[in-house]
């Protein structure tokens, strides 16, 4: 394996949890809901996933538990923001505090308990192709799943009627409601999907990337996922680009340090954040005069008038 191949492989694994959480949040925000609790849902997924996997000995059940935990957290958020029309930003931040605490309580008995990670899937024949084989056909199941999710979400949002309705709920919930669509129910399903994806992203951390539990192991990745959704201008393909760009910059700065580049490590560590700003600025400068990118109804509670 060449160094370039190795770097590609690392970038993909480092970016996948970001991508999983981001693609979920993208659907949530497309439906008009801003859930800043991604970090809280993600870490609950990480803790529940590893807890159930250790108790049952089954990685699959662990993954299911992580998805369930993410969805349970999302349901709590939905109860507050959709059922009771509370402020989404405050509810999301509270959800993060709650999730950080509860994950610590759930994870406490499992600190320092090792378990094997989920193995990679080698696609027969294809994985033997030089370069491409290693990068595309020798990954763990989550990587394939994350790409499938991007494809699926892109198809759903732009090629199906349900996707159109979901976007309508995000752009103009009043009109969607007037046309007879159940705005709150659609938003509820979107929020649940976001929770499931965040839980999955958490499970990827605690079951695949670093298979064990430590407190706060998501280390702010939920926040980066939120930034990626914005970077993507709410487009699934761009979310994939954003996640890989960000993950790639992180990995490159680590490699630059390892190679002994004589630049303060803090500057290298700041580059992914700075370059993400630069990249988005360049994109926006190139598409001057384009239409509005953020869903118009984003973050505004909607209460149907009867």
């Amino acid at each position: 394996m060449t160094l370039a191949e190795a770097i590609f492989l690392t970038v993909i694994t480092a970016s996948t949890p970001l991508l999983l959480a981001a693609i979920g949040e993208l659907v949530v925000e497309r439906s008009g809901v801003l859930n800043l609790g991604v970090e809280g849902m993600m870490i609950m997924g990480a803790a529940s996933g590893v807890a159930i996997a250790i108790i049952t000995g089954s990685s699959l059940l662990g993954v299911v538990a992580a998805i369930g935990a993410g969805m349970a957290m999302a349901a709590l958020f939905a109860l507050l923001t959709l059922g009771l029309a509370t402020n989404q930003v405050a509810a999301g931040l509270s959800l993060t505090i709650f999730g950080l605490g509860l994950s610590g309580v759930i994870g406490a008995p499992f600190v320092g308990v090792p378990r094997a990670g989920i193995p990679r899937i080698e696609v027969p024949i294809l994985s033997d192709i030089p370069v491409i084989g290693a990068i595309f056909f020798r990954q763990d199941p989550f990587v394939y799943l994350s790409i499938a999710l991007v494809l699926g979400v892109a198809w759903f949002l732009w090629r199906t009627k349900a996707g159109l309705v979901l976007r309508a709920c995000g752009e103009n919930p009043v009109s969607a409601h007037a046309l007879g669509y159940p705005v709150l129910r659609i938003r509820f399903l979107a929020v649940l999907f976001g929770g499931a994806c965040a839980g999955l992203g958490g499970a990827y951390l605690s079951l695949v990337l670093t298979p064990f539990w430590t407190a706060g192991m998501t280390a702010g990745r939920g926040w980066i996922a939120l930034a990626i959704v914005v970077f993507a201008s709410w487009l699934p393909w761009r979310a994939m680009l954003g996640a890989y760009l960000f993950g790639g910059l992180i990995i490159l700065q680590l490699h630059a340090q390892s190679a002994g580049i004589r630049v303060p490590s803090q500057l290298l560590a700041a580059l992914p954040y700075l370059l993400t700003i630069v990249a988005l600025t360049v994109i926006m400068a190139l598409r001057r005069g384009g239409g509005q990118v953020a869903p118009q109804g984003l973050g505004r509670p909607f209460v149907p008038d009867r």
Partner: peptide, 18 residues
């Protein structure tokens, strides 16, 4: 490789990979 953290499993693993 300085990971600028005392614990951040994901980045520690990535630094080790590098």
């Amino acid at each position: 490789v300085w990971v600028n953290a005392w614990f951040n499993p994901g980045v520690e693993a990535d630094a080790a990979r590098a």
